[in-house]
């Protein structure tokens, strides 16, 4: 069992949660993720670790309550336990000096990108960050990312804060006017696809952090497979970061919807409280 030691609601359906998981806390590196199970009959889902505090034995994740598992997790309170945490999984992001780096983050990707951003800053990269949200209420972590970044752009779909439009609006401008050595996009698949399409035209090296359906998270089931450069890769062990110009995003988006009907059904039961 793994104790919840902190919980803060960042937005109406976005939660930041800290767990006691000392073995993970001491081993995890930027870009790696954990698999969690909320309860014994639960699903195994991947979550990126946002902060690790090895001296305390704590790890922190940020998640959006979209499916049954994240909704159940969101209902848990400080002092309660969850059934399983396994990790770190996946390969760490390769932290090195790239030069001028643009970080593009949307949704909970804004939190997930933080450890990589810190690492890149420590490696003396010049960092420009673009945060995208649907609306003002869903913007968070601007302080942290602002302090790491040389420049910070915020976009909202509805124009309620910052630049009106998608993350591609400022990115287009930056790519036209500045020399960029590397772009990293973390967020909804559709956003990462748009970013990769854009940077391809400018021939800028681009990494994306993929988030497919997983079960074991150790390369056993192959449920998370994606096509990268014409080859099948397992996101859990070969990723989660890949060359954005080589990822078959359409296939990934299709595979992410594999169980959307079942997910809806589960969520409906949960809301009716028939299940748990």
């Amino acid at each position: 069992m793994y104790r919840i030691v902190d919980k803060i609601r960042l937005a109406s359906n976005v939660v930041k949660m800290t767990f006691e998981a000392p073995l993970v806390a001491r081993a995890i590196k930027p870009g790696q993720f954990i698999i969690i199970m909320v309860h014994e009959k639960g699903e195994r889902i991947p979550l990126t670790v946002v902060v690790s505090e090895p001296e305390k034995g704590y790890i922190t994740v940020v998640f959006q309550e979209v499916g049954k598992t994240t909704k159940l997790l969101g209902r848990k309170e400080i002092g309660e336990d969850i059934f399983a945490i396994m990790g770190p999984n996946g390969r760490p992001f390769s932290i090195e000096y790239y030069g001028n780096v643009v970080l593009v983050a949307g949704g909970v990707g804004v939190a997930e990108i933080v450890p990589i951003a810190k690492g890149l800053k420590d490696a003396n990269n010049s960092i420009t960050t673009i945060i995208g949200a649907r609306t003002k209420e869903l913007i968070f972590f601007t302080d942290i990312l602002g302090s790491i970044s040389n420049k910070l752009y915020i976009t909202t779909d509805d124009g309620s804060f910052g630049i009106k439009g998608l993350v591609t609006v400022p990115l287009t401008e930056i790519l036209k006017t500045e020399h960029i050595d590397m772009v990293l996009a973390v967020g909804p698949t559709i956003m990462m696809k748009a970013v990769a399409n854009l940077t391809k035209d400018h021939n800028v090296k681009t990494y994306v952090s993929l988030n497919p359906i997983m079960i074991d998270g150790t390369g056993m089931c192959g449920g998370c497979r994606v096509t990268v450069g014409g080859e099948t890769k397992f996101v859990c062990v070969d990723g989660p970061e890949f060359d954005g110009h080589k990822v078959n995003f359409n296939e990934l988006m299709m595979r992410q919807k594999f169980y959307s009907q079942e997910e809806k059904f589960s969520c409906k039961l949960l809301e009716e409280d028939l299940c748990h």
């Binding site: 009959k41 639960g42 598992t69 079960i215 056993m220 192959g222 059904f265 589960s266």
Partner: peptide
């Protein structure tokens, strides 16, 4: 893969969905 299919059933008990969360 057989691993995924069998793990969904044998390990995650997907044949008891929605009592178990994995379908």
């Amino acid at each position: 893969s057989a691993n995924e299919f069998l793990a969904r059933i044998n390990l995650m008990r997907a044949h008891h969905f929605p009592e178990y969360d994995t379908p």
